[in-house]
């Protein structure tokens, strides 16, 4: 129901996590966390969701920003996509995040949309998850009972479903120190402001001429973004030749489980997975050399 104000809403602007937890618990499933709102407000407008209590993260300052840690970086959940693009550490150490963020939405969307919202919305076509998967990211969840850390591969539980419990907030995303050269390949139907039809992130670590570690993750071609299992078994310890890349591409194609929709048929999406996987691996290997 576009074009009018959302009725019956209460918006809270807590300044501490503790206050936020309290409101979230009080309103349970009738409460939603509001970060940039680029997903949530759209969902409320088109009546895909109908929570009445929105808890904004905007005034909880500790949630925004990229900080370097001993083992890597910690990205506050409310860090905007443009914050990521402008972050020196991210630019230098995690160029794949830049690659993925650059193609997301529009400048306006990137100014408000956040990394926390991008993963917590658990939309299959979201761009950051595949990259976070191959980087080995962990999600830090906070609640009134304390914090817990979940590997990103366990975070997604279905279309628009995550492991975030009621009363919990994604506090930050931790990335280990970079190893390998992660890249992101995405196929879309329009150059600007469009969603992925299929996406592949790859992260290959070379040891001289042979592959030491290889990770491939898929986006937009399954209910959740997923790591492709078995890639290391093919590549590890080998020099990366066309045949092996082809084998991985086939593996990825089989691992994908796309749907047919307006943006492409399942069959076509599977083919895209093969093509994008090949491109991603080749580019990652090149970047290693």
């Amino acid at each position: 129901m576009i074009g009018t104000c959302l009725g019956g809403l209460t918006v809270y602007k807590p300044t501490t996590l503790e206050d936020a937890f309290a409101i979230l618990i009080e309103h349970g499933s009738d409460a939603a966390i509001l970060a940039g709102g680029t997903d949530l407000l759209v969902d409320l407008r088109v009546q895909r969701r109908d929570e009445h209590h929105l808890v904004s993260l905007a005034n909880i300052t500790e949630l925004r920003g990229v900080t370097e840690t001993e083992n890597g970086v910690s990205i506050g959940a409310a860090t905007t996509l443009n914050d990521l693009l402008h972050s020196d550490v991210i630019q230098q150490n995690y160029p794949a995040i830049i690659e993925a963020t650059q193609v997301m939405g529009s400048n306006q969307i990137r100014n408000t949309g956040t990394i926390g919202g991008n993963i917590a919305s658990a939309v299959p076509s979201a761009d950051l998850p595949p990259v976070l998967l191959v980087l080995g990211a962990e999600v830090v969840l906070a609640s009134k009972d304390g914090e817990r850390t979940v590997p990103i591969c366990e975070f997604f539980q279905g279309v628009r479903k995550t492991c975030v419990a009621i009363g919990e907030i994604v506090k930050s995303i931790s990335l280990p120190n970079p190893s390998g050269s992660a890249v992101y390949e995405r196929f879309d139907l329009r150059q600007g402001n469009s969603l992925a039809v299929a996406a592949v992130a790859a992260n290959i670590t070379m040891d001289g001429d042979t592959v030491a570690d290889a990770k491939v993750a898929l986006g937009a071609v399954a209910p959740t973004p997923e790591i492709v299992e078995g890639v290391n078994a093919i590549l590890c310890g080998n020099t990366c030749n066309d045949n092996l890349v082809h084998e991985v591409a086939q593996l990825a194609t089989q691992a994908s489980n796309p749907i047919t929709d307006l943006r492409g048929s399942a069959q076509y999406r599977r083919e895209l997975v093969g093509i994008l996987t090949t491109r991603a691996i080749k580019r990652s290997v090149e970047a290693e050399q």
Binding site: V11, K13, L34, G36, G37, T38, L41, V42, L54, S56, A58, S106, N107, Q108, I109, N111, T112
Partner: peptide, 11 residues
Amino acid sequence: PVNSCLVLATM
């Protein structure tokens, strides 16, 4: 620059 349709006035 932001899309003002996706920002709540209270925010």
